[in-house]
Write a protein that binds this DNA or RNA. Structure first.
Lengths: 349, 349
DNA sequence: CTGAAAGCGCTTACAG
DNA sequence: CTGAAAGCGCTTACAG
């Protein structure tokens, strides 16, 4: 910057003000400065700027590392958030240490490197929330913990998703439903909340819902299918909330002579569109766009960084039903779906 | 840091040296300093440190934004690189602006924010390479451009992958092969290189290879299938190098009465394992682990950052054949695979 | 083994 | 409309 000032024949403070636009600069001075910056290929140093201004224009995305089994939909959050942050002039840093690495996170948050933090895969008793609060770093959650009062978050409206899924299956004549949830989901977590909503929705349409906890693997999917078939052979539709059980579940169904969707309906909650297209038949899903949630989370956080002192905002995103091909009428009833309601749905493809 | 020094009764420089360990400190002094840091919950400021030391311990991952159609395997690169960088004491920043945003990238690289850069999805004439070289930021590529001499990179050994795929199909009796490549792949890019290697490998085993360029979409996959069937109805096996065409290709095959693997074999190059498990039948693949490539790319870059002035390293990762279920014997011949070689393969699941 | 001091490259009151 | 100067919180020769 000193070089620019010298070349333009002004002081460094004038260069700085020209750059930030925080005070009026005469046209001729500004032009000389801009020319000098171009000639020298000058770019302001991010560290000097950050040191003085206490703002880095960097936000972090906390994605607990599970290299072994990443949800493919995580990519949509990441790209949605990253693109949007960049559009709004922020950089996005990835923090993939596990939930349990609280000390490392405290260190990270205390460094002043990031202006704010986005927290993914939030658990009910998530230790990261305390750490961030203590470090006094603004943050927003995607999902939420057990006591989210006073905290900014954005989450899926599970009550709405449950209703969409169950009503759709009910219209197809299904009365006995299964719900496969990931075993890793702790008590009071997303899976449990969704399960509760599904059960209520099932109750409202006079259906029953059998929940099964599955390990997040191909084998877990097989086991879940066996468990459901064992619990009640009449189960004709399954709601799934774990990407990784899908292959095993579908294969077990095929091996037991249950064709999808003719003999068995399957619908997935919060599965990314690209993933849903890969199965045969393509998977019907319910859920909001992860890309949009990622973008909205960035907006929520930047609102705080811009000094908004308003009360915490808690946004619920309503999903939509994306019918692809994995749900059909219950073969054991001769029910036909009402044409009036189904007309209003979005049929994809 | 001044607070720590005061509390410990030493100078700030002593605190700094204790922190960095770059000069001997007496045990008692060190203990007082450490206690003071704990008491105050002190964490060194990243910007002050970066300003003086000219090192940020941040690396950037350049992933051209394609929110519309991200490859799910991109997630493996990201997580592999991020985890590994974190283990080695570095932060990973995501840069998802498009390849064409050269000015923004120059700005970014000139800020001094990142010590080094990892470049993904490198094109033959990739403008980012010049920008980074001019900004004098150390970088390493995953994949490579048209003139990679003197540049660090790590890439898939396509000759090896092509050989594995073609020899496997050849052993199954397939003589007419198709190759579906993404249309977006520009001349001289990965797709073109792989295509050349596949053709050579096919020539060596006396098979023919028909290449088809497809749009990266479900519809593109359908079109590709039709093109291949139209070009030669005898094509009995298809090598695919684009995740997004897989659903359309598989559906078109099914609609034309060609069962996989009984009537048609399909094998994918560089598809992530979790993606491969989702198709029915599960997809056989050839390729190295994207997680490992991400990790190795970090190592390659950090080697430079650690001041290694050795000549550029160019690493080729050899893939392996992961047989899952999408390849079978050519139904139009009565060929049986030789048991000796197939024994040596890794059968998954 | 320890301290005093310069300086990294900016921003921003203070002064004119 | 512009400049001189302090200071952000560290690191690192220089000195003892």
């Amino acid at each position: 910057m000193a070089d620019v000032a010298r070349l333009a024949g002004v002081s460094v403070s004038t260069v700085s003000y020209a750059l930030s636009g925080t005070r009026p600069i005469s046209l001729s001075t500004r032009e000389r400065i801009e020319q000098a910056m171009l000639d020298l290929g000058y770019t302001p140093n991010a560290f000097a700027r950050g040191l003085k201004s206490k703002r880095s224009r960097i936000i972090a995305l906390l994605l607990p590392a599970q290299t072994a089994s990443p949800r493919l939909s995580a990519l949509e959050y990441i790209l949605g958030a990253s693109d949007h942050a960049q559009e709004r002039g922020y950089h996005l840093m990835l923090w993939t240490a596990g939930v349990e690495a609280a000390d490392d996170l405290a260190q990270f948050a205390g460094q002043g490197l990031v202006d704010g933090v986005l927290v993914l895969d939030v658990r009910p008793d998530d230790p990261r929330i305390q750490v961030l609060a203590r470090a006094e770093v603004p943050f927003a959650m995607i999902g939420h913990n057990a006591e989210p009062d006073g905290l900014d978050y954005i989450a899926t409206d599970f009550a709405h998703s449950a209703r969409l899924a169950v009503e759709h299956l009910s219209e197809l004549g299904h009365r006995k439903l299964g719900f496969v949830d990931a075993m890793s989901e702790v008590e009071g977590g997303d899976g449990a909340r969704l399960g509760k909503e599904l059960e209520e929705a099932a109750g409202r349409v006079g259906a029953t819902m059998i929940p099964v906890a599955a390990e997040e693997s191909v084998e877990g999917g097989r086991t879940a299918f066996a468990a459901l078939a064992g619990a009640d052979p009449q189960v004709s539709a399954i709601v799934v909330f774990s990407e990784h059980v899908v292959p095993g579940l579908m294969r077990a169904a095929a091996e037991n002579g249950r064709r999808i969707p003719e003999d068995l309906s399957v619908i997935c909650i919060d599965m990314a569109p690209h993933v849903a297209e890969l199965t045969t038949p393509p998977m019907s899903t319910v859920g909001p766009s992860a890309v949009q949630i990622g973008q909205a989370a960035v907006d929520l956080l930047l609102r705080r960084l811009d000094g908004d002192a308003a009360p915490a905002r808690q946004l619920l995103f309503q999903g939509e039903l994306n019918l692809r091909g994995s749900c059909g009428p219950n073969p054991t009833t001769d029910h036909h779906p009402g044409s009036s309601t189904s007309q209003q749905r979005r049929y994809l493809q």
